[in-house]
């Protein structure tokens, strides 16, 4: 390996540079995300689970009411979400934690000193991957389920309840991605971030909702996954139980993206890299 005798830094023509802000940070983050094999391995596993699980567990429909059937069909398509969302969270978390664990952050933030622009770009990339997985997964699952989604169990985009399930599910994917990327900035640790998300998605809701404590029940009710179920709930709420109304559920779900993102923004700007 031998280097050319240096003439200067410019052997050719003048080097043209442009303002380093959000738009170019976004391009940079896209290059970073797509040039790591781990990104595509995660996307591959996410899609495999997204499509594979419903195919394995969805039986022939027994519903006869097409309105109920359409909602059930949409739920069937998103059967694997609990698991897929963990992979989406891992993807989102790695976008930020890997900066700090590898030391790349020093390159990233000298190239784009506007820290908020970098975080916004990362959150955008995380959201796009989450949406991509959800949309591609849902369409593929629809075709994979084939005849199981026919008759009374057909999708019906004129059915507002069914569309709500779809929209809230997609919002849930974006929220999880942004939450993970933001937590990654706050914790700067891949393991810590992923563990926190697994706890919030899979472990805590079951425990918190079942212990005989109002406070625990309330905390359980505002966990992102529980809030998302509340957002699409059509049953009347029993006054004795702690469960969010659909509107409150949606608001809490979105807050799980907005508040951690704002906290990450503030901490990223204040802390040393």
């Amino acid at each position: 390996m031998s280097a050319a005798t240096p003439t200067d830094t410019t052997p050719g023509t003048e080097v043209v540079t442009h303002r380093a802000g959000y738009a170019r940070a976004l391009r940079s983050e896209w290059i970073k995300a797509r040039t790591l094999r781990s990104t595509w391995i995660l996307v591959g596993f996410a899609l495999l689970a997204f499509i594979g699980l419903p195919v394995l567990v969805t039986g022939e429909t027994t519903v006869t009411d097409p309105a109920e059937g359409a909602v059930a069909a949409m739920h069937a398509i998103f059967t694997a979400s609990d698991f897929v969302l963990i992979l989406v969270a891992v993807l989102g978390a790695l976008l930020t934690t890997s900066e700090f664990t590898t030391g790349m952050a020093r390159n990233t933030f000298t190239a784009t000193p506007k820290r908020g622009a970098v975080l916004a770009a990362k959150a955008t990339i995380a959201s796009l991957f989450a949406l991509g997985i959800a949309v591609v997964g849902a369409v593929a699952t629809f075709f994979a389920l084939g005849d199981k989604l026919s008759g009374a169990a057909s999708l019906d985009f004129g059915n507002a309840e069914m569309v709500k399930v779809l929209v809230v599910s997609l919002i849930g994917y974006v929220v999880t991605a942004v939450l993970a990327a933001s937590l990654g900035v706050l914790l700067r640790s891949s393991v810590g971030t992923i563990f926190t998300i697994v706890a919030m998605q899979l472990i805590l809701p079951g425990i918190l909702l079942s212990v005989p404590s109002d406070i625990a029940n309330w905390v359980g009710a505002i966990m992102p996954g529980v809030a998302a179920s509340a957002a699409v709930n059509t049953e009347p709420i029993d006054p004795g139980t702690i469960f969010l109304t659909p509107g409150a559920g949606l608001a809490v779900l979105i807050a799980w993206a907005v508040l951690p993102f704002l906290a990450a923004m503030a901490v990223l700007k204040a802390r040393d890299i």
Binding site: R24, R27, A111
Partner: peptide, 13 residues
């Protein structure tokens, strides 16, 4: 790819 990612922040070719 590392350099391309850094370059992209400034639109460097």
């Amino acid at each position: 790819q590392h350099l391309r990612a850094v370059a992209a922040t400034h639109g460097i070719s």
